[in-house]
Design a protein around this nucleic acid. Structure first.
Lengths: 133, 133
DNA sequence: CTTGACTCTGACATCATGTTAAGGTGCAAA
DNA sequence: TTTGCACCTTAACATGATGTCAGAGTCAAG
């Protein structure tokens, strides 16, 4: 199948199919006489795997590792779980960071009247005019 | 003061000081005969404002808007609060997305024994072998 | 044959930041 | 004075994942 079909069936853009090829995440497909890429069902399966991992937020290099584990019959489930747990921890770190930002800003917003007057604790906090205490 | 001092005092890298200048977030500073940039206390204050906003996760264009509001005596606190609330909502959207990923992956990891055997629900889910039901 | 949908490559843009290279400046010690 | 080090300059390339655009070639249907 051509790139448009494999891309839509895998749920990724044609741009990303070519990109994954360029960074070696998927093998270079056969080419027709026209030069068009020609994909197999196995290529499609591999792209879907990548799309699923990407949807779970795995970065490219971890997806590369997961693909290796996928095709490695000798790997243990512990190897996979280890990668997954590390990614869960990374997700939690990001959530904590965002949560801290959100809480700080929420507190500032709560203390701002948000009316027609100019006085605004949010701007003052950003400017470093520490009003605490 | 020179760029090294203003940068360390504002808590940003020299690289970012030059970058903020190049995108018009801070004014072009005076230059010494040597060509060195020469910053005022006001420049430092502005950089600190930017650093604070950045620490709260505001993207550059929102920081640009906040800087405008900061120097606008006629703006209402409602204008500032509106921007802050929009950013809080954006942060919450990101947290929700990360939380969904984390939950999915957590469930998969919980169902994976993580031992020396090859069988692994995590890899199977990524490969699209739907085990639900 | 024309038209339109598809494909090709290559390049530029995003966002915030780091790094590196090659060179100029300035100050202090030898 | 010369040497040396810390600092500054610009410019360019890199990240990660993706979009978009331009200019050209392919193909199938009308």
């Amino acid at each position: 199948m051509k790139i448009g079909e494999v891309a839509s069936r895998a749920g990724v853009s044609q741009r990303m199919v070519r990109h994954y090829e360029s960074i070696g995440l998927i093998p270079r497909p056969l080419r027709r006489d026209s030069g068009y890429r020609d994909y197999s069902d196995e290529d499609l399966h591999r792209l879907r795997f990548i799309a699923n991992a990407r949807d779970l937020g795995f970065p490219i290099e971890e997806i590369r590792a997961l693909l290796t584990l996928w095709s490695d019959r000798d790997r243990s489930s512990a190897d996979v779980k280890h990668l997954a747990l590390a990614h869960i921890a990374a997700l939690e770190d990001k959530m904590r960071a965002l949560g801290a930002m959100q809480k700080t800003l929420r507190d500032l917003a709560d203390s701002c009247r948000g009316d027609s007057h100019a006085n605004c604790p949010i701007i003052e906090a950003l400017a470093g005019n520490d009003d605490s205490g």
